[in-house]
Design a binder for these strands. Structure first.
Length: 275
DNA sequence: AGGGGAACCCGTACGC
DNA sequence: TGCGTACGGGTTCCCC
């Protein structure tokens, strides 16, 4: 499930691998992943466009084209951007929904088993409008303790839910929300407005550190996530709480508890360490 | 306005 | 064993 670190890994890989390449041919195999653009229009606007760069915003991979259009990919759970340089042999491309043939013989695929992921093509204005609705990037300098504290105070929701709200803070999903709260020793069910400035400062640090460490490990492959080469990220070995319900807390040894009661999503925490 | 709930999709897990 | 069904999961959209 690509969150910020996984999406960042994909975008960096693509940036190094396909910048400067021209798109020679576009094939849409499953049109239901497309948003706001028809197969025909997508093919027309991508044909002969040159890829300028690839980068990340929130949990989106953004591929800038020399035409001014941006290809905006949201992998959700099972989506993957895969570069086929002729080495894929097995089932890697079974779930390809979109194939962009490049001028050097390679092809960029958007593959997605469950197809809850989406692919959109936006012009500059449309992208600006869309991006403006997303919250602050947690790895930006402007994501200060004061900023986080203000976000938390302005809502009546539990803190964990707020961390995952893309309109408030962009890029954090269930895995990293769980991890950051454990690191900051904060109970995920606590009302965000009750978090003190000191706690917000520690939480900000925990968020930034866990995201940076996960990027360094090329992300968390809990189930489906694969990078642009089809490989897994190794941060799953470093997770302290997510997926570790019933196992001992790495800090105090007491048994970690899993619940769905907070936001309908699976939350794992240490009831002894997190208050 | 802000929050709750449905829809999107299909592999996997589970029940009969 | 084989079939049918419920479930999960992030975001968007609709409705209250």
């Amino acid at each position: 499930m690509p969150e910020l670190p996984e999406t960042e890994t994909i975008a960096r890989d693509l940036d190094g691998a396909i910048s400067g390449r021209k798109i020679k041919k576009v094939s849409v195999r499953k049109r239901d992943v497309l948003r706001g653009v028809s197969s025909r229009s997508l093919a027309k606007r991508l044909q002969d466009a040159t890829i300028v760069r690839s980068w990340r915003r929130a949990k989106l991979v953004v591929i800038d084209l020399d035409t001014g259009d941006r290809l905006v990919v949201q992998p959700r759970f099972t989506g993957a951007l895969l570069i086929d340089d002729g080495n894929f042999r097995g089932a890697e491309l079974d779930y390809s929904t979109l194939r962009l043939e490049l001028d050097d013989g390679r092809a960029l695929h958007y593959a997605d088993v469950r197809r809850l992921g989406t692919v959109a093509l936006m012009n500059a204005d449309r992208f600006a409008e869309y991006s403006a609705k997303l919250g602050i990037e947690p790895l930006d300098r402007s994501f200060t303790a004061a900023h986080l504290s203000a976000v938390l105070r302005a809502t009546s929701q539990p803190v964990k839910k707020v961390l995952m709200e893309q309109r408030k803070i962009a890029g954090i999903g269930n895995i990293y929300a769980n991890e950051a709260l454990w690191r900051a020793r904060i109970d995920p069910s606590r009302l965000a407005a009750s978090i003190s400035v000191e706690e917000a400062s520690l939480l900000r640090e925990s968020i930034v550190n866990v995201l940076r460490e996960a990027i360094a490990a090329r992300g968390t492959s809990f189930r489906d996530y694969r990078d642009a080469r089809g490989e897994r990220g190794s941060f799953v070995e470093k997770l302290d709480v997510y997926g570790r319900g019933g196992l001992p807390c790495r800090r105090c040894g007491s048994k970690l508890v899993s619940t769905h009661a907070i936001d309908g999503r699976s939350t794992t925490m240490c009831v002894r360490c997190q208050h």
